[in-house]
Computed example of a mutant assay.
Amino acid sequence: MKYLITASLLFAITHLQAQDNDPMQHLLDSASTPQKEYVTGAFKSSRVINDHSMEFIGKHVLDVRILHRFGRVNDGINEFFGLDQASMRLGFDYGLGKNLTIGVGRSTAEKELDGFIKYRPIQQAVGGKGASPVSVVLVTGAALTTIQFPSDAKYTSTTDRMAYYNEVIVGRKFSEAFSLQVSPIYVHRNRVPDQADFNDTYAVGIGSRLKLSKRVAFVADYCYVVSGLNKDVYKNPLSVGFDIETGGHVFQLHFTNSTGMNEKAFITNTTDSWGKGDIRFGFNLSRVFTIGGKKKKTAPEA
């Protein structure tokens, strides 16, 4: 009886170990457990039009961005419907990691220098444990106005020329065709142009993308200023346009009522009104390059 019990125990242990080492059993177990997959491609660029999007450019990727904005269309034929005037921003964004991007830029409007840090603590995912239905992105940045002030200006120091902003983006790719994001934004200006203005401005941005074909998508962003600006003078920036993919480029054509092309500029300096026809035509061009990182080894030719 003692030998029978011992033999039975040995058989049971051996059988259990065989099950644990059975690759087919592991495969079946894995198949029954959904794997978490991150959602990508909510937007085709790290910007919607003016505002940041919830997308990132990737690790060791340099995104060279040329943003061009013409004059107002309703200026008429004398200004060739705005094409005789132009302002631009040249930017360089670099991916330090999958969820971390830094960037700098220079705009002709007020000759502004700007920089930002963009971080994604949560990325939308499906399946698996801990999958999030939305992406959450944090952005902080600063802008420095370098235009020459009048000789009798009271405040001219570097501190007086500085402005800062913080933004939280919450977005979701609802389908292959449609994405939407909402972003509360806070802007602080050390000095304001008029005593009636406020140093702190609070706004809410909305951005969306609707895919029309394999390479073309309709995009729009709107920023509603909650408080901090004189609504009789300043307007809410609204931009609509089309993203066109051409290989390594993302080419965007758009119409907008804002001249500025960084958060401080387009939120606090927009004075044109869509209702009055103060619309500007513009385009954004993005070209990405892979810089740094380990190069993959290739097999020698035969």
Results as ranks from 00 to 15, higher is better:
Tyr3Leu: 07
Leu10His: 01
Ala12Thr: 03
Ile13Phe: 08
Leu16Cys: 07
Ala18Gly: 06
Gln19Arg: 07
Gln19Met: 10
Asp20Glu: 10
Asn21His: 02
Asn21Thr: 02
His26Tyr: 03
Ser30Leu: 13
Glu37Met: 10
Thr40Tyr: 11
Thr40Phe: 07
Gly41His: 11
Ala42His: 02
Phe43Arg: 00
Val48Gly: 05
Asp51Pro: 01
Asp51Ile: 01
Ser53Phe: 03
Met54Gln: 12
Gly58Gln: 01
Gly58Asp: 08
Lys59Phe: 12
Leu62Asp: 15
Asp63Phe: 14
Ile66Asp: 11
Arg69Ser: 05
Gly76Cys: 08
Ala86His: 14
Arg89Lys: 10
Gly91Pro: 07
Leu100Ala: 14
Glu110Ala: 15
Lys111Glu: 14
Asp114Val: 10
Gly115Val: 05
Phe116Glu: 12
Tyr119His: 11
Gln123Gly: 15
Gln124Gly: 12
Gln124His: 11
Ala125Gly: 15
Val126Asn: 14
Gly130Phe: 15
Ser132Tyr: 12
Pro133Asp: 06
Ser135Leu: 09
Val136Gln: 07
Val139Cys: 12
Leu144His: 15
Leu144Asp: 14
Pro150Val: 01
Lys154Thr: 14
Lys154Phe: 13
Thr158Cys: 13
Thr158Asn: 14
Ala163His: 12
Arg172Gln: 04
Lys173Asn: 04
Phe174Ala: 02
Ser179Met: 02
Leu180Glu: 05
Gln181Phe: 02
Tyr186Trp: 13
Val187Ser: 10
Val192Tyr: 03
Pro193Phe: 00
Pro193Ile: 00
Ala203Cys: 01
Val204Ile: 12
Val204Asn: 02
Gly207Ser: 00
Gly207Met: 00
Ser208Trp: 03
Arg209Pro: 01
Leu212His: 05
Ser213Phe: 06
Ala217Val: 00
Val225Ala: 04
Ser227Ala: 10
Asn230Gly: 06
Asp232Arg: 06
Ser239Asp: 00
Ile244Phe: 15
Gly248His: 11
Gln252Phe: 10
Phe255Ala: 11
Gly260Cys: 09
Ala265Ile: 02
Ala265Pro: 03
Ala265Gly: 08
Ile267Met: 04
Thr270Asp: 04
Thr271Ala: 08
Trp274Gln: 00
Gly277Thr: 07
Gly277Arg: 09
Phe281Asp: 05
Phe281Ser: 07
Phe281Asn: 09
Ser286Phe: 15
Arg287Tyr: 10
Gly292Ser: 06
Lys294Phe: 03
Pro300Gln: 09
Pro300Lys: 09
Glu301Arg: 09
Ala302Gly: 13
